[in-house]
Simulated scan of single mutants.
Amino acid sequence: MLTHKNKVLIIGPFPDPITGLSISNAVLLRGLSANGQHVDFINTEHATNVSSELGKFSFSKLNFLFFYCKIYKILKNDIIYMTPGQTFFGVMKYLPFVLTAKLFKRKSLFHLHGNSVKDVYASLKGLKSKLYSSTIKCFDESIVLSQSLKVNMQPFFKDADIHVEHNFIQEDIAISLSELESKKDYKEIKLIFISNLLPEKGINNLIDALLKLQSLDINFKIKIAGNIPVNNTNISDKIAQLKSGEYLGVVSGEKKRDLLLWGNVFCLPTQLEEGQPISILEAMTYGHFILATRTPGISDIIHDKNGALLENYDVASIMKQLQLLTLNQVEQKGIFNSRFANNRFTEASYVERISNLLSTNA
């Protein structure tokens, strides 16, 4: 564990808006503080709403320059934990932070929440490629969310300096196995979607698939929760066309617990190179069959025993997989997930594991 004399600085996005990454940073900040650790942070989030404009330059994004005013905090701390983005600009905006840490001999860690670094690096040429690589190599160590995601960091770090630490579910929605088994219902198939309603997360294709099935008189109950970004507001009209569909807005705490208890099939037909979505771990803990796109991070935890992986995230593929669902397999794989995940992905264990990594060679 970290000793109390070690001072930690977390640099990355914090809520709002709510994303898996911003939640992770907030949980780590709260957990270290609760353990008596001296911890501070620099919030690099400049947006107030979720959008699909990842990696695209805009002058509004120059707002992050304000956060360099807080770079002096690096000098007041011993360990600098950072969660950069994966695009060229997402990495480059952390260059002043990591250079300052290196100059003043502060230990720095790059915690990757995703699976796109390898693809971004392969796509860059010339100076941009060298800048991207050099920036990441300035960090002392890195963390990824699952074993197959290590490939993203292997061009930049020795294998011993790439650590694997899985994600967590939030403490305020944790549930005991006995409570879950007494309340969970597998009498009918009930779908849920919990994520920001970005087209890239697959929500549009999922709704289109359900609407096509509805036209064939095949209806599924579904409840959808998450923030609607400004570039996808028409999704509300599509959801309204579903006879058995309901949009709940952003949920947390008891409302999120209730939703996770209600459903038994979690859908995430994402188009993104996901890391290890917190929402999937939550759904597993609550006894859901998992229907998600095959990506390295997701396929590390989802397989034939606990769900189904989409090879393609298009409407036809989603329709086909939904039609293959049976109550028996949903119940069997849901129960498998709850027994596997219960107490495995706790918030406390996540904070302890990251704390242990931060303390190494500090």
Rank of each mutant, 00 (worst) to 15 (best):
N342V: 01
N204Y: 14
Q276A: 07
D16N: 15
A240Q: 11
I189Q: 13
G126N: 10
L322Y: 00
V351C: 05
E273S: 11
Y81D: 06
N77Q: 11
F156D: 09
V351Y: 00
S244V: 11
R106P: 07
A174E: 10
N25Y: 07
S252L: 11
I18N: 13
I42V: 15
A101D: 10
N167E: 08
K102L: 12
D237V: 01
K56C: 05
T295F: 06
S355F: 09
T326W: 05
E274C: 07
Y247V: 07
E246A: 13
F110L: 07
F289A: 06
G85T: 03
A47R: 15
E171N: 13
P84S: 03
V91D: 00
R353D: 11
D304S: 13
A292K: 01
T44A: 06
I194S: 08
D40T: 11
F168S: 07
V265A: 07
D217G: 00
C69Y: 15
Q323W: 02
D16M: 15
K118E: 14
D40P: 10
I218D: 05
Y132Q: 10
K73L: 12
L145Q: 02
N115I: 00
G307T: 08
H113D: 06
L259E: 04
E141G: 08
N232V: 02
A341D: 03
S33C: 10
L259F: 04
D304H: 10
Q321I: 00
I290F: 01
I302P: 01
E200Q: 14
I194F: 09
N328F: 10
G297A: 01
